[in-house]
C-alpha cells in the first residue's frame, strides 16, 4: 500500500508537473522561434513537415519507454523514426534529437533513484570516463576520422555480434536457472504455486549496495547476488565508449549497455545505475560541444526545432519514468531479448548503410 502511494506521489508531484512544464515550454518555444504553433495542420518550419503534437509526445513516450527499460536514452530509436516515418530529414534533426536524448533519461534517473536502483560508487568512474571521452571524440572526428564510414561499419559489426549474443543468451535455458534470472523464475513459480494471480516482480525497494571497496576493486550487490568490478577498467570503458559515440555523433548507451550485459553479465536491473547517468552526461557534453565548439571550426550554428524537441521530451521523460517503475516486473530474458533486438538491428543498419546508404540516419 505504501508502495502504491509512493508511486502516486511521484506521478502527481514530480511527473505530471514536469510534463506540463515541458509542454508549456514547447508551446513558448514555438511562438518564440516561429511566431506560431506548428502541428498537424501547419508544418514545423525547420523540419518542413506536418506532424500532430500528440504524435511527437507519443514518439517521445514509446522511444523513451522502450529504451529506458534497457538502460538507454531515446535517441537510437527516435532519430531513425523521425527521419523515416516523420520525414524530418533536415539537418536540424540532429540537435533536436540531442535535446530529447538529454532530457528524456532524467525521467528514468528519478524513477530508478526512487526505486533505490542507483549506486554512485558504480556510476562514478564510468561517468568520469564518459565526460572525458565525450570532450575528445569530436576532435578525433575532425582529424583522424574525417571519413567515419569504415569505423562506423566496424562498430556496426560489433553491435550486430553483441545483439546476436544477447538474443542467444535470452533463449539459452541454462541461463534461466542461475543468478538473478534463476531466482526470478523460482520465486515467480513459488508465487504462482501459492495462488497469487498478480505477476511476480523483483520486490520493490531492493537497493544496489556497495558491499566492499577492495583497493581498485568495487563489489556491488543486488537481491543476494554480487559483482566484483575493477574501477580503472570501468573508467576506460566509459572513456572508450564516449570517444566512439561522440566521434560518430550518437549517444553512448547503445554501446555501453551491451558491454555491461554481454561482457560483465550484469542484469538490466543493475546496469541502469551506471548507464542512465552516463547517457545524461554524454548528451549534456554533446549539446555543449555542438553548440559552442563545433561552430568555431565549421563557422555555422545549427539550431534545433525546439518546440518539436520539447514536446517529444515531455512524452520521453514520462515514458522513461514508466519504464523505471515497471522494469522489475519484466523478466531478465525479455529485457535481454529487447536489448539484443535493438542492438542487433542498429548494428545491421550500420553495416548496410556502409554498402547501400539508407534513406535515414541512425
Amino acid at each position: 500500500m505504501k508502495r502504491e502511494s509512493s508511486i502516486k506521489r511521484e506521478l502527481l508531484v514530480e511527473q505530471l508537473p514536469t510534463f506540463v512544464v515541458l509542454m508549456i515550454l514547447g508551446t513558448a518555444a514555438a511562438y518564440g522561434q516561429h511566431g506560431f504553433l506548428p502541428g498537424g495542420d501547419v508544418a514545423f518550419p525547420l523540419a518542413q513537415v506536418r506532424v500532430p503534437i500528440w504524435h511527437l509526445v507519443w514518439m517521445g513516450f514509446w522511444t523513451g519507454y522502450t529504451m529506458a527499460i534497457v538502460g538507454e536514452a531515446a535517441g537510437i530509436f527516435a532519430l531513425p523514426y523521425q527521419m523515416s516515418v516523420l520525414q524530418f530529414t533536415a539537418a536540424s534533426v540532429t540537435p533536436t534529437t540531442q535535446l530529447l536524448t538529454f532530457i528524456n533519461p532524467i525521467g528514468a534517473l528519478f524513477g530508478f533513484i526512487r526505486n533505490k536502483q542507483s549506486n554512485w560508487d558504480f556510476a562514478l568512474w564510468v561517468c568520469v570516463g564518459g565526460a572525458a571521452g565525450a570532450l575528445i571524440g569530436p576532435f578525433i572526428r575532425l582529424t583522424v576520422l574525417s571519413d567515419p564510414g569504415p569505423f562506423k561499419m566496424a562498430v556496426g559489426l560489433a553491435l550486430a555480434t553483441a545483439g546476436v549474443h544477447l538474443c542467444w543468451a535470452a533463449f539459452r535455458r541454462a541461463n534461466r536457472s542461475q543468478g538473478i534470472e534463476g531466482k526470478f523464475a523460482a520465486e515467480a513459480k513459488a508465487s504462482r504455486a501459492q495462488g497469487v494471480t498478480q505477476p511476480f516482480a523483483i520486490p520493490a525497494g531492493i537497493p544496489i549496495e556497495t558491499v566492499a571497496k577492495e583497493g581498485a576493486y568495487l563489489v556491488i550487490g543486488f537481491w543476494g547476488e554480487r559483482w566484483r568490478l575493477h574501477q580503472p577498467t570501468l573508467f576506460l570503458i566509459g572513456f572508450g565508449v564516449a570517444i566512439c559515440a561522440s566521434a560518430l555523433g550518437v549517444g553512448g548507451g547503445f554501446l555501453l549497455v551491451p558491454i555491461f550485459a554481454a561482457v560483465y553479465a550484469l542484469p538490466m536491473y543493475v546496469l541502469v545505475a551506471a548507464s542512465i547517468p552516463f547517457v545524461i552526461i554524454l548528451s549534456a557534453v554533446a549539446i555543449f560541444t555542438y553548440t559552442f565548439i563545433v561552430p568555431l571550426f565549421s563557422g555555422s550554428t545549427l539550431y534545433a526545432e525546439f518546440a518539436w524537441g520539447l514536446f517529444a521530451s515531455a512524452g520521453g521523460v514520462f515514458g522513461a519514468w514508466c519504464a523505471a517503475k515497471t522494469q522489475r516486473f519484466v523478466p531478465q530474458h525479455f529485457l535481454k531479448l529487447m536489448l539484443g533486438g535493438i542492438t542487433g538491428i542498429a548494428g545491421v543498419l550500420y553495416v548496410v548503410d556502409f554498402f547501400h546508404p539508407l534513406p535515414f540516419r541512425i
Binding site: W58, P199, F334
Partner: peptide, 30 residues
C-alpha cells in the same frame, strides 16, 4: 488490477502500438 498480468509484456505491447501509429501517420501524412 485486472491488467496487471500484462505488465511483463508491456515493452512488446508499446512497440506494437508504435507500429500501428506509424502506419496511421504514413497513411494520413505521406
Amino acid at each position: 488490477k485486472r491488467g496487471l498480468h500484462l505488465l511483463p509484456y508491456l515493452p512488446f505491447i508499446v512497440l506494437a502500438i508504435a507500429v500501428v501509429v506509424a502506419a496511421y501517420h504514413i497513411r494520413v501524412y505521406w
